[in-house]
């Protein structure tokens, strides 16, 4: 074997072997990314989890207290309410965003005059900075100057001089922030689904038409099944973004009135940063992880390549 001649070279150490070994080459190429991910993703996450098990406050290093923060949170009505509202916020907003987004996508997929222009308009909520649109909604839902109140008055549903306390009433405030989130989230879903719709060959619809399918049946048996992979992707992202929403709430209501619109993210910020109880804030943030993991697991199974997508694609 040639190894004899290698052995004759005295400078061959385990380290130089590692450096020239082809199997390790791939590893070396991955190292920069691994460092990056460890430093910017894993480290903050682990630090946050560690903090959640301490009684750390601003300016004072914490002591390890185990799961005490979590125990305390489980009896905290505000935290439980925030968790409940976060779930409701995510569920309602995601379902409506999906329904309206899909409807818009199908509408935009038809031939119509000024198609490109209308598509661009649909994107507006998405390109406006969140805080800016939140401020706009702040005005839209203002007690005195709300355009909705004005419209209701004009239409005669509301007597003149009567006002609706949109952001002051707990339930109305919850509805209002959900509305704002829906408005902001629709373009992402609509445009992504539109991209998905455009990959469906028109001849499939023609074939289905000749096979006797009605408009609804074409959607049900052709469009929808072909869209499922992209629906899984877009809804995963939508759910994750909605669940972790912060900006919109913070700019519109700061979690008020009486914590009615408090999301887990805003509560964590309020307790941890504004209240200074870093350990507790970290515990609230960490409590979001299981929910997010669950959402990712669901989509992971949803995203698995279906049987019809497998096999070689020679088309």
């Amino acid at each position: 074997m040639a190894s004899g001649s290698f052995a004759a070279q005295p400078e061959t150490t385990a380290w130089t072997r590692l450096m020239v070994n082809r199997n390790w080459l791939g590893f070396w190429f991955m190292v920069p990314t691994m460092i990056f991910l460890l430093f910017f993703l894993a480290w903050p996450l682990i630090l946050g989890m560690w903090m959640s098990m301490t009684d750390m406050r601003i300016g004072r290093g914490g002591v390890f207290i185990g799961l005490e923060n979590y125990q305390y949170l489980l009896e905290d009505r505000d935290f439980l309410n925030a968790t409940g509202f976060t779930l409701a916020y995510t569920a309602v907003a995601s379902v409506v965003k999906f329904a309206v987004g899909l409807y818009l996508a199908i509408l935009l997929n038809n031939h119509m005059p000024l198609k490109a222009f209308i598509r661009a308009i649909v994107l507006i909520p998405f390109i406006v900075p969140t805080v800016l649109s939140a401020v706009a909604f702040w005005w839209i839902f203002d007690t005195q100057f709300s355009i909705f109140t004005w419209l209701l008055q004009k239409a005669g549903f509301l007597a003149k001089g009567q006002y609706i306390n949109w952001l002051g009433d707990p339930f109305l405030a919850q509805c209002s922030v959900i509305f704002a989130n829906i408005w902001r989230g629709i373009p992402f879903i609509a445009i992504t689904l539109l991209a998905g719709l455009q990959t469906v060959s028109p001849s499939l619809y023609e074939a289905a038409t000749l096979d006797g399918a009605s408009g609804w049946q074409r959607f049900r048996f052709v469009t929808y099944p072909l869209l499922t992979p992209i629906i899984a992707v877009v809804m995963t992202f939508s759910v994750l973004f909605t669940f972790t929403d912060f900006q919109l709430i913070w700019a519109m209501t700061r979690g008020g009135p009486v914590n009615a619109t408090q999301l887990m993210a805003t509560l964590s910020y309020q307790r941890g940063i504004l209240g200074g109880r870093l350990g507790e804030g970290a515990a609230i943030a960490t409590a979001m992880v299981p929910f997010l993991l669950a959402a990712i697991m669901i989509s992971w199974f949803g995203l698995q390549r279906r049987k019809w997508q497998q096999g070689e694609s020679n088309d």
Partner: peptide, 24 residues
Amino acid sequence: MVFQNYALYPHMTVADNMAFSMKL
């Protein structure tokens, strides 16, 4: 009609493709 690109429903098996019109 038989289309140039066949227009087979990719998410249906061969049997389902052929049966689609009758199922409808």
